[in-house]
Nucleic acid binder design. Structure first.
Length: 368
DNA sequence: TAGGCGTGGGT
DNA sequence: TACCCAAGCCT
């Protein structure tokens, strides 16, 4: 039988182009099949994993995914939780709006959809935190429907294969990539294809040092044929990040409790708890005043070396100021400030939403 | 529409 | 050290 006849599934009339056929054959033999979200597949689990995996590496996500499912095994459990509890489970994972949107969507699914995810692209992308690519992944990976994905892996594979030289940041490039992604995505075995093109990007068609000799697409890969795989995709040169100088006051009493402050609802770490961050010329006296603590309660103060903490768009130079104060019951403990036992400030245990830097400042400090 | 939004791993 | 960027979405 000529090889090309395999393009057509005689039972369904489904069609796989050369690209999809290569991807699917490779996936079945060499793709990943043992990721946590590939077991007991459901829309809830796939959705949760896709949200966590946005801009986040697989190995980072795994423990968060398992912890999350343990606490919220069903979407109804999540819908009934408080946003603060959800943020607590997200502590250290970053991009905390994902957690807020996750919670919002769980409530919508629970209330408007009787707990079942909608199965069309339009309804899925209406949900908070679900864009075109995540919706495609949910359709393909959990519902056996055709769904087109275009994440970082797929962008890399497609831009190399089709030798797309435009900057990834440009609209025309993204549009072109979506067209290719749509064109290649088959209507049958879409789940295999979706997982396959992502796995190929993650394990073979990597950013640096791609293993082209092991790639099933090698014969027709535009970038490889020109010997420029690592130069594609191209990105616009980036500006230098501005640096913001901040003080963080880690104030601890004799009972090993630390003061944390609820951050603004906008900006970085919106709505999370953190040791008070202030501008670089703020004084200890002022922060003690805010907390209703007298300066004569201070037992010890030490200023440590600044810590650099880098974001996508700027950098914080965080100078930690560690202060030990006498335990007192007249310090402020309202909506904005709380004393937290420092034993509770571990990623696995913390029961409020905190940033990774906040945990680091408290745990690595001299106050122990 | 370009920029805001985290963190950790790789080079 | 410094830079790049990873299963993107929202405004």
């Amino acid at each position: 039988m000529p090889e090309d006849l395999h393009w057509i599934d005689l039972k369904t009339g489904g069609y796989l182009d050369w690209f999809a056929r290569k991807i699917n054959t490779w996936q079945k033999a060499h793709g990943r099949h043992d990721l946590p979200w590939q077991q007991n597949i459901s829309a809830y689990r796939v959705w949760l994993s896709e949200i966590m995996l946005q801009q986040t590496q697989v190995e980072t996500v795994k423990p968060y995914f398992l912890r999350f499912l343990e606490k919220y095994p069903k979407i109804s459990n999540l819908a009934r939780a408080s946003t603060d509890d959800v943020l607590a489970l997200w502590t250290g994972l970053g991009y905390y709006n994902r957690a807020r949107n996750l919670h919002k969507t769980s409530i919508i699914i629970h209330k408007d959809y009787q707990g079942a995810f909608p199965s069309c692209l339009h309804r899925l992308t209406e949900l908070p935190g679900i864009g075109r690519s995540t919706a495609g992944a949910i359709l393909a990976l959990s519902m056996g429907k055709r769904g087109v994905i275009l994440d970082g892996n797929v962008k890399r594979v497609l831009s190399r294969f089709h030798f797309i030289e435009g900057y990834l940041e440009e609209r025309a490039t993204t549009d072109e990539l979506w067209r290719h992604a749509d064109r290649h995505t088959p209507a049958i075995e879409t789940n295999v294809y979706a997982q396959g093109i992502m796995d190929l990007g993650a394990t073979i068609c990597t950013r640096s040092a791609p293993a082209c000799s092991e790639c099933p697409l090698i014969d027709r890969c535009g970038a490889h044929l020109r010997n420029v795989a690592t130069q594609i995709p191209r990105r616009k040169p980036k500006r230098k990040k501005p640096v913001k100088d901040s003080l963080f006051f880690i104030i601890c009493n004799e009972d090993n409790e630390v003061i944390v402050e609820k951050r603004e609802e906008s900006g970085v770490w919106a709505g999370l708890w953190s040791p008070p961050e202030r501008c670089k010329d703020y004084s200890l006296g002022k922060i003690l005043g805010e907390l209703n603590l007298h300066e004569d309660t201070v037992l010890h103060k030490t200023t440590e070396r600044p810590i650099k903490h880098s974001f996508t768009h700027f950098q914080i130079q965080a100078t930690p100021i560690y202060v030990r104060v006498r335990s007192t019951d007249c310090s402020r403990q309202g909506a904005r400030f709380r004393w937290i036992n420092s034993d509770m400030i571990k990623k696995e245990k913390v029961d409020i939403g905190m940033s990774a830097l906040a945990l680091k400042l408290i745990n690595d400090g001299p106050l122990g």
